[in-house]
Design a protein around this nucleic acid. Structure first.
Lengths: 303, 303
DNA sequence: CCCCACCGTTGCCAAAAAAGCAACAGATGA
DNA sequence: TCATCTGTTGCTTTTTTGGCAACGGTGGGG
């Protein structure tokens, strides 16, 4: 049942109780047995783990370090045993993903497919939502892992990896602006534009710049879905403002082109892979996060 | 010597070799012994870890998850054994810290002192440098942990915790601007200011704002050390631009006051605790990082 | 086709490790 | 000083683990 040496189990209990005999009582073994395991451990590690006081045993420095590690291993153990329970019970473990629309289209399905090949007994829940909702779901435990854009720092959220992508204008290849390598916002003011919903780009530098500089856009539509924005842009109804990840497929098909915004007020879009800070990650989740991080890093390199 | 069950050691080798007998050969034990450990492990976990093929054993899904965890435990084990080697050899383990000046004055010494109380056999190296240098030292392995301000994201660096602090103007309590709760940059233009060195605030929003808005400051001095800036400000020679952490002691002594800048172009200062992404953290380092994170979070709450 | 090589598995027995029991020395507090 | 707590140590028993040989099954090559 226990995945680590009995010596370490005994060590943890002795450290907790501060006494060999009390620990032995809790462990339902003789005190001498516990004592021998501790002595053997100290001999093999060649480091004193306790200082013997007339009133009991107090941890040494090395002992404190080891205890910290052992406790972490115990958490890991409980975690993986829980995953095995899931696999035994429901037939598979579950990873609940919440992501912004940019990645739910292409990247996430690709990663999930690769993951399923190796770890077939893992099931997914994939939700598409806005960054604020994703952060809420992470901290509340409704989702296990999230992909957000430009999330504001949150003490209860741990960011595993960030990637930045240039923010830019998206249009049909035959659009006049498509001949430029980079465009400026005021270039776009001469044409129709398609803006995201208020909620979608709240807090972004695009919002700030628009509000501040009062660029007069002739807005054709405001959309709440990237999917809609792309459809309108594909129909040649205006210029959209997205990041390159949003249109990888359309770019491959030659339907849309991406031209970065060169205005220096416009910051890059930052995608974050994040999880709850306190909640330990199950091995399945850790593996998935790793695979996702590498994929994101690769896409960042590609532009 | 090994800190985890022989069953897990055997399991890892079998997974690596894909065969009981080859694993047994490498482990210098009989194949039957290895087999029994695997069978016992599967029975206790109540989960099949391998699928038996005529050509050998292939990991199941659960096995892949367990393998990932076991490999991580093995890395942890090597790590802590290395720390014990240090303690046995040099008499103590070492944590090499590189930090910006904001924290080397008060916060870090306080945390190091608290740390020394519990883990006396740990020695420190404390360097004060600029963010760019800190990041370099982290990725090169010259330092174990760093505290940076407004560090640009780096794929080889992992941020354990971030905290934001308002950026503001620092002056003597009798300064005319000290009567305001918040100040704007153009308020300061009427007085002498003390600016940091070019290197110090490179990339900050202060630099951008100054360069962009062309606010005409009568600069009394440019300094490369926060210490010098504070000294000049304390002498009433001008307004300095710092974050509240820089002047906690001076504020307590009533020598200086902090007034946040309310210009909306001025972003908060972000302090990051970061380590190398790939390099595993020793237990001592993890404990120190944890203590430091909590302290930083507490100071963030306080203002 | 058979045979050989390789696989995992199992029964039997020896070796090793862990646990239980009782007694010991040392320190503390009533 | 006695009672009581601590960790420690022989000695014995119990449990676990490993070694050896043999078995049943599969796949490839002569």
């Amino acid at each position: 049942m226990p995945l680590m040496t009995t010596a370490l189990r005994y060590f943890e209990e002795v450290a907790r109780q501060g006494s060999l005999r009390k620990a032995a009582e809790r462990l339902h073994v003789a005190a001498s047995a516990v004592n021998r395991q501790i002595l053997k451990l100290e001999e093999e590690l060649e480091v004193p783990l306790f200082e013997r006081l007339p009133r009991g045993m107090r941890l040494s420095s090395a002992g404190e370090l080891l205890l910290y590690q052992v406790r972490q291993w115990q958490r890991d153990e409980r975690q993986i045993l829980g995953v095995f329970d899931e696999i035994r019970g429901a037939g598979c473990a579950e990873i609940r993903v919440a992501s912004v629309e940019s990645m739910t289209d292409l990247t996430l399905p690709a990663v999930m497919q690769r993951f399923k090949q190796r770890y077939s007994q893992v099931r997914f829940e994939l939700l598409t939502c806005l960054t604020d909702v994703i952060v809420e779901r992470i901290v509340s435990g409704e989702s296990d892992i999230g992909i957000c854009v430009n999330a504001s720092p949150n003490p209860r959220v741990r960011t595993l990896r960030s990637a930045t992508f240039r923010f830019g204008a998206v249009m049909t290849p035959d659009h006049p602006l498509a001949r430029q390598k980079e465009v400026k916002l005021k270039d776009c003011a001469e044409y129709c534009v398609i803006l995201p919903d208020k909620d979608m780009y709240r807090g972004s530098t695009l919002e700030q710049t628009l509000a501040h500089h009062q660029v007069a856009f002739s807005t054709f539509a405001e959309c709440s879905r990237v999917l809609s924005i792309k459809s309108l842009a594909r129909a040649g109804l205006g210029i959209a403002f997205l990041n390159p990840l949003d249109i990888v497929r359309e770019a491959q098909l030659g339907e849309l082109v991406f031209r970065p915004l060169s205005d220096h007020q416009i910051a890059d879009a930052r995608l974050d892979i994040c999880v709850a800070r306190e909640r330990p990650m199950s091995p399945a989740l850790a593996l998935f996060a790793e695979m996702l991080s590498e994929t994101l890093a690769e896409e960042e390199r590609r532009g």
